[in-house]
Design a protein around this nucleic acid. Structure first.
Lengths: 223, 223
DNA sequence: GACTGGATAAGTGGATACACAGATACGCTT
DNA sequence: AAGCGTATCTGTGTATCCACTTATCCAGTC
């Protein structure tokens, strides 16, 4: 159960292709917030009819990536500054919970694996924002997975997808891989300490402190 | 924006009707977990074609109320015991966050309104489980709304819907309106104190303590 | 010259029809 | 007699079609 946290629930081949195609485009920042997504356009692009695309829209709307207004089409969802803060607030308590619950499953091998993840993250930071964002997400989700709470991990993963474009933009403007590494080292540190309550607090702080940083570079478009 | 927290995002008349119809049936416990939802059946029942029903399924799947397996239809989602606990864990941190953020907006009128809500809840407990569950949800959401965080409130509301059938069953077996009132009085108490940090902790405890109670009565069917 | 009203065009939402996948039951073979 | 394979049927998934809503543009009026 819950094989991959980011996977949508029930989807068939054609619809899945549409979903993946659009989600990738959105995550890569190909569209800007407020852009209209025209079903026919995307349908012909992938080589199918409008219908699977419509269903994909619905899936994406449920995840908060697009907004469907009745009879007025599908537009790319943008987060206001307040919504970015809100998303980070939610992330902070959810990932805080996850790390607290993960603590019993932390052992030496896990810590070593997380260190390797950080190495990969640092190396990726040189190749570009895309790679770094992916590695950064992988690091956070790796910890969350250890909580052994599928629904929790799924919700967290969903939030990561929503803020991904903003993280990307932030990274493109100010690249600070050095301090990013240090901040995540702190997380491994507290995991090593074995104090679940402390780990929760550290994770919370780690996340909410990130929000103001990229708030300055907010909005790849306006809603 | 964000007029009603429980409202799905982009939905048209026909689809909305299908959505409401199915959700109400699910919340009332009309179906049991694992039951198949046949699009054609529901469509004719409301007097429309299968399509809006399918879109409604997708919406419900995103909320975790049903599960859609490719080419194998839509079945009512059931929560395992672990998943019930997990849902309450998630609720506890989210509503904890909400009450912490709500604190600055607490004043005398709000407290009085919450007291009235408790009165209504107690009165409803005599008329039946349905009324009590609705009032109980309203009380919790009332507090959450004060946080002024639309996305947070939406997520919490969604979790309430998922656990609603289980709360209903629990209430039908052991009705304990008296202690329920006392437990919620504590919440108003801490809101009156003005201590945001303490309120968060109290809310968390209040919620996680509920989980084991209704775990004994878990599962209106098996997935 | 600007604003409002109507008409036309474009595009979304819904229904119906069709193709394909999965489940079940029956028959054949071992 | 039991197990496997096949055939049929039910039901999902996709496409095309139609109706209705909305947006845009132009003309008329103030």
């Amino acid at each position: 159960m819950a094989a991959d946290a980011i996977e949508p629930l029930g989807i068939t081949t054609a619809e899945e292709e549409a979903y993946r195609h659009i989600q990738r485009a959105l995550r890569m920042g190909r569209y800007r917030a407020g852009d209209r997504l025209i079903p026919e356009e995307i349908a012909t692009e992938i080589g199918m009819s409008r219908m699977p695309v419509r269903e994909a829209f619905r899936q994406l709307a449920a995840e908060g990536l697009v907004v469907i207004r009745p009879n007025r089409g599908c537009i790319v969802a943008g987060l206001t500054l307040d919504e970015i803060y809100e998303t980070f607030e939610i992330r902070s308590v959810l990932e805080g919970l996850a790390v607290r619950l993960a603590m019993p499953h932390i052992d030496v091998e896990v810590l070593e694996e997380l260190e390797r993840q950080l190495d990969r993250m640092e190396r990726a930071s040189q190749t570009g924002s895309s790679d770094w964002v992916v590695r950064h997400q992988a690091f956070h989700l790796q910890i969350c997975q250890l909580s052994n709470r599928p629904k929790l991990v799924r919700q967290i993963a969903s939030l990561h997808v929503v803020i991904e474009p903003y993280l990307r933009i932030w990274f493109d403007y100010v690249d600070k891989p050095a301090s990013a590494r240090a901040e995540h080292e702190i997380l491994i540190e507290v995991l090593r300490s074995g104090d679940a309550g402390k780990a929760e607090i550290v994770m919370r702080d780690h996340i909410v402190e990130t929000a103001p940083l990229l708030a300055n570079f907010a909005s790849p478009g306006r809603r």
